[in-house]
């Protein structure tokens, strides 16, 4: 008990601050990454020719570990929050882009033909038919992006930019297990909570008519 009060006295404030910083990184990068990924996903879906070249290139880029992105940006931009946010935004973009593309590509031909036969133009088909039907997959991408970002944000501490990684690195360096847990447990909880939150969101925004199909899968 005494130990707990001591810990709270010592680290309470910095824990809250670092959770805040961590959330800020996640929120900023996922927002930017989502907008970028969605836009690019739609564009690539609409121009099959480029998609065939760009998608494989992107998946090669995707194999670069996040730490390298952060590291290299750090060398060029210096120790700024922007370094972390730019690197993580690019990371968050990949799954959203991929899922947007896949979700749109998987919309059945018959719905598109019916829409075209009804006299919808391309924009109307996109917003009224294709995107609503692709939403579950797109949100799946958003979920991945968020979870990855929570994970990679831990690395921000590596270049001295705070977040929950700060405790983990510090704990490892000074060999204090309780400090490691101080960062690891909140980070784990944060990832799980955000994942569940997005699951709820997914259920909310999926058009009612296709929810059944979704559950069957």
């Amino acid at each position: 008990m005494e130990y707990l009060t001591k810990m709270i006295d010592l680290y309470g404030e910095s824990l809250l601050r670092n959770i805040g910083i961590h959330l800020l990184y996640v929120f900023a990068s996922v927002s930017i990454g989502f907008v970028l990924g969605l836009t690019l996903g739609i564009l690539l879906y609409r121009s099959e020719k480029y998609a065939k070249i760009i998608l494989p290139v992107l998946s090669v880029f995707n194999t670069i570990p996040g730490i390298v992105f952060i590291g290299i940006l750090f060398l060029y931009l210096g120790m700024k929050p922007a370094t972390v946010i730019i690197a993580l935004s690019i990371y968050a973009m990949f799954p959203v882009l991929k899922n947007t593309f896949v979700g749109l590509t998987n919309v059945e031909r018959r719905y598109i033909e019916a829409a075209r036969g009804c006299g919808m133009n391309n924009r109307q088909i996109l917003f009224r038919v294709e995107l609503p039907l692709a939403i579950p997959t797109i949100i799946g991408g958003l979920r991945m992006a968020t979870i990855y970002t929570v994970s990679w944000s831990v690395l921000a501490a590596m270049i001295g930019l705070g977040g929950l990684g700060e405790f983990i690195y510090q704990g490892i360096n000074i060999n204090r297990n309780d400090i490691i847990l101080l960062g690891a447990i909140p980070a784990a909880v944060l990832a799980i909570a955000l994942g569940l939150l997005i699951d709820v969101l997914q259920r909310k925004v999926t058009p009612r008519g296709i929810r059944k199909e979704l559950n069957r899968r």
């Binding site: 719905y111 033909e113 829409a115 609503p132 039907l133 008519g209 296709i210 199909e213």
Partner: peptide, 12 residues
């Protein structure tokens, strides 16, 4: 226009 696969929009 009516098609064999019906093509009612499942989200509507």
């Amino acid at each position: 226009y009516v098609i064999q696969q019906i093509g009612l929009f499942p989200n509507m």
